[in-house]
Design a binder for these strands. Structure first.
Length: 104
DNA sequence: ATCATGACGGCTG
DNA sequence: TCAGCCGCCATGA
């Protein structure tokens, strides 16, 4: 827990992501003022309670892909939620140019 | 203290 | 464009 930011900071940033948009783990780290801490952001999302209201599904990796094994239940849930928000996913990848959120 | 493992990312062939 | 490989930081055995 020597990270330069706290889980609550990440939770706040998460709550700010507009519906229909996505951000990458590395982006959240940068927004928190901690370049290089992408994996740590992932650790924090991993610890979110199952029924959380935070839009964790709007976070994907830098390749525009969902960071869960293809076909796993979590993968399917994230994909479903994104598509319901109008995020286009083709060939397992999100069109970052079109949906990536760049800040307020 | 060391090693393996992640909801990661950048560089390279 | 894409698969490999390697670096990164935290956590748990």
């Amino acid at each position: 827990m020597t990270a330069p930011f706290t889980p609550s900071e990440i939770w706040y940033l998460l709550s700010r992501i507009p519906k229909g948009c996505v951000v990458t783990y590395g982006q959240l780290a940068n927004m928190a003022g901690a370049p290089g801490y992408a994996r740590v952001v992932g650790n924090i999302l991993k610890q979110l309670p199952a029924g959380t209201d935070l839009p964790w599904h709007r976070v994907i990796n830098g390749k525009g892909q969902i960071s869960f094994p293809d076909g796993s239940s979590r993968y399917n849930l994230q994909k479903l939620r994104l598509e319901q928000e109008g995020v286009n996913i083709s060939y397992g990848k999100v069109n970052l140019k079109a949906h990536q959120w760049h800040g307020e």
